[in-house]
Design a protein around this nucleic acid. Sequence first.
DNA 1: TCCATTTAGTGGCATATACCACTTTCTTCG
DNA 2: CGAAGAAAGTGGTATATGCCACTAAATGGA
Lengths: 154, 154
Amino acid sequence: MTQAALPGLTLCNNASLRRATRKLGQFYDDMIAPSGLKATQQGLLYQIHIGDEPAMSAIAAALIMDLSALGHTLKPLIRDGYVETFADPDDRRIKRVRLTPQGLVKLDEAMKLWSLAQQRFEAMVGKDEAARLRAALDDIAALDFDKPFAAPSR
Amino acid sequence: MTQAALPGLTLCNNASLRRATRKLGQFYDDMIAPSGLKATQQGLLYQIHIGDEPAMSAIAAALIMDLSALGHTLKPLIRDGYVETFADPDDRRIKRVRLTPQGLVKLDEAMKLWSLAQQRFEAMVGKDEAARLRAALDDIAALDFDKPFAAPSR
DNA sequence: TCCATTTAGTGGCATATACCACTTTCTTCG
DNA sequence: CGAAGAAAGTGGTATATGCCACTAAATGGA
C-alpha cells in the first residue's frame, strides 16, 4: 500500500543523514531541555570546556563548522552569561573562549541530562552499533573532498 | 601531538551526527550549487516530485521534519517559481504541493549534479559502506523515542 | 444540530549554519 | 622598513529547523 517504488527516497546519503539528524536532534534536545539548553549548545559548551581556552577558529575546526556560524551560535551563550571571550595577548587577531562559573555549573547540569539521553539511545540501538555508527560518521567528517578527485592531471 | 585525551569529543552520537551532516552537507551543497539550489532544496523538490501532489503534512512526515519548518523551507522555492500549492477540494484544511514546469526542469538539472555528488561520495567510502550507513541512519530515523522506555510495566 | 476535540497550516520568534565582504593584525619579503 | 598577502573575526543576509500560539476546517458524539 505505502510505496515500494521510491528509489531515491532513501538513496541519498545526505538526505538520510539529515533525516537522522533531525530525529536524533529532537530526542537529545528534548532530553536536555530541562537545563534550558539545546543539545547543540551543550555540545558547544562541552567543546569549550575540554579545550584550553580555545581560539574560536580552533573550536570551529573541531566542530567542522564555519567560523562565522560559530560566532553566531556563541552569542546566545554569551548573552546568557555562560561563556566569555577575551583577546589573546600574543596575537590580537585571536579571540579565545572560556566558560564562566555559571557556564560550568550549567554544563554540569546539562551533561547529566545528556548522559541519560546517551544511555537511553544506546539502550535502543545497542552500544556496539552506536559505536560503529559514530566511527562511520567520524570517518565521513574526516573525508577530504577537496580535489583528490577529477584530477586527470599528472 | 594533536590530542589523545578527548574522551567525550567523539562519544556523543548526536554530535557525531551533526558534524558529519555539516561536512557532507557542504559537499553536496557545493556539488549542487551550479543549479542555484541547496542540497536540502533539491531533496525537497525530489520529495514533492515523487509524491502525488502531497499534502504538506505528508511531506513533513516523510522528511521527519516539523510542519512549520517545512512551510518556511518551501517559501523560497515558491518565491522562485519552482513549486506551487493549492487547497485540497475535499478538505480545505489540506494544502497540496506540486512542482511547476520550471520546478521540474530545475529538479532535472539538480538531479544530474546530485548524481555526481552521490557517485563521488560513494567512490570515496565505498558503495557497500554507504548503503550500510544509510541503513543505520534510516533505522535511527525510524526509532520511536516516545515512551517505550521507563515503562517497567508489562 | 451544536459544541468539544482533533487536524492542518500560518506567523512569529529563536537558534543553527553558510557564504561573502570587510577590518584588523600578523607575516613575509624585497 | 614598507607593501603584498595570509589569518582571524565580525556583520549582514539567507536558508534550515523547531516550538508555540492561533485560526480555520472537519469530526465525533450528546
